[in-house]
Amino acid sequence: MIAAILSLTLLGAVLGAVLGVANKFLHVESSALAGELIEMMPGSNCGQCGFPGCSGAAAAIADGTASPACCPAGGKTLAAQLAAKLGVAVDLSGLSGEGPKIATVAEELCIGCCRCGKVCPTDAILGAARQIHDVLREACTGCASCVEKCPTGALVMRPVPVTLQHWVMPKPLAA
């Protein structure tokens, strides 16, 4: 009993000391650029880009393995900002094709299970247990995390509706 406790304590202490020393001498300076990019990302960690959260995506964009246009929640605007920051050209056509989308609840299908609200990174889904849920249009970032959690398929991604407040006079046709 005593021998076991002592050996495990010793092992823990030695390994801890090794880790501490390694942290001091093998410290990796995290890229300052990645830090700046993280500040620009939406910060909702929705994971739609395929990276573990916004910091992962920012690191990948900073070292060039991911396109600045990889963030669906940030959309065209963020892609343009990131590209300007990095000084690279980016193909925005893939983003402009579909346009931004947000989640909407099909009221006849919603059973009020509350599963969607728990994964929403911005708390954009309202609804108590066994009550029909709803999505706050202004708070939804379009990450679609909720869609796969819905057991009845009541959550669907729809294009953001154009309202009078969002409408923009079309660009005149060039000569």
Binding site: S44, A73, L78, P121, T122, D123, A124
Partner: peptide, 16 residues
């Protein structure tokens, strides 16, 4: 509007 929205998103994520 997009800029304000991005800021609001960040704030909401932090609050959550």
């Amino acid at each position: 509007r997009d800029r304000l929205r991005a800021e609001a998103t960040k704030k909401m994520a932090r609050q959550r």
